[in-house]
Design a protein around this nucleic acid. Sequence first.
DNA 1: CGTAAGTTTGAAACTAATCAACTGTTGTGG
DNA 2: CCACAACAGTTGATTAGTTTCAAACTTACG
Lengths: 251, 251
Amino acid sequence: METVVTPPRPDLGLLGLADAPEPCRSCTARAFSFCGALRAAELAELAAVSTQVTLAAGQPLIAPDAPARDVFNVTTGVLRAGLAMPDERRQVTGFLLPGDFVGFGAGETYGFGVEAVTAATLCRFDRPRFTALLHAHPGMERRLLCMASDEVREARAHQLLLGRKTASERLASFLRDLAARQARRGGAPDVAALGMSRADIADHLGLTPESVSRGLTALKVAGLIRLEPAGRVRLLRPPALAALAEGRPEA
Amino acid sequence: METVVTPPRPDLGLLGLADAPEPCRSCTARAFSFCGALRAAELAELAAVSTQVTLAAGQPLIAPDAPARDVFNVTTGVLRAGLAMPDERRQVTGFLLPGDFVGFGAGETYGFGVEAVTAATLCRFDRPRFTALLHAHPGMERRLLCMASDEVREARAHQLLLGRKTASERLASFLRDLAARQARRGGAPDVAALGMSRADIADHLGLTPESVSRGLTALKVAGLIRLEPAGRVRLLRPPALAALAEGRPEA
DNA sequence: CGTAAGTTTGAAACTAATCAACTGTTGTGG
DNA sequence: CCACAACAGTTGATTAGTTTCAAACTTACG
């Protein structure tokens, strides 16, 4: 028995959906996405250079050494982006949710890998054409610059986590951040839907799967979270969880 | 006996230096900097909205919660940028060298702190005016977008370091990367000039000062580096150091 | 010189990793 | 529909790498 969650429901009228080109018209991610701020004409141009990609859980989207020919926008599902070392060590730099944009800052090759965690769909844009479009629309370019700045900020915050936080603090930060991101996409503010395995979380937080498991148990025992079916985690005392995440003594 | 290295010597003529406005004319960082690619007219506009900042070693430039009114470009010296937790824990997200740009992606407040490690000088730009200038010159904006992308890439690589590398590997990565950055600015390719303390390095690498010291000793014993006076570190076998940094078995 | 700060080195303690066993879940084929 | 296999997750015991605590040593500087 699954708890039914209200799906994201952007106000289609306000977004000028009536004018939107086909793949976009029915896109549930547009409200939280890069393309959500575009005018109908720009959106049409964008849609013209886009194709759809569908991935099954576990399938790769981007190989680190592949030539960076395309950029992508996630429409449904969860993906993981990360770096690998010659041995088995991995760092998952981030999980991609609907509305997230991938592959922009790449050079010749992507330099990082991306795989589907759950089944996922994306918009694929030819990079040269996408770039040309950007140059024609300074507003789009500016928006992308803001997104890049946000990414830098998030990456720095994650550096603090990896460099200085304890296992429990890492888990608390992760759950809080994931719930917040999902809330922005229409989810409940006090639920983190873990679509990914403990191993993926471990590679994101610089821990082992065992430590992730222990950390979650510790948070549960502390009364900060409840583990629900289907990989859902309910945040029972968000302020206390935030305090732990930030290393505050807790009020 | 020191290997003599050619110091940075930008070809002033090719850079249009004769036309350059004053603070820029004598600027030694311009060749490696954001502004180095600007045409004389653009540079003049930029210089018109800039003022100079001088800092003594240890002085703060940016407080994390200060309103982000300015952006900066380092001209001389070394600075550290980082995040802090309520207790004493710190993460130095990066060291800033001449030519590096600071403060761009900030929102209302900077959200991170910056302090001078050595005596330093910077160009200060009023943010609203800088932004207006950017909008007037798409080339500048595009260049900034590239810089932001590079920052993201570097931040991700540092996440791998913090999440998955051993103490020795972190030190090896740090020394190699610092030497490479300094080489781009005209330094010797096999020397890393440590202007910062062990504590700063520790806060950058997610270690303690003691572990940094031990790590350096380990690299020295392994014949990979030599500790020279004035905080200089000579890289004795760059390929082996790189292999260690990347976690390769070493050829 | 003498002091203070920074660095190195040593010994003990601790957190998270590793190794290992067990449990629960999911999916498949008999 | 149940049995079983395969895998993900949890829990326990032990180990290892880094931190912590402490002291000695260096370096820079008044």
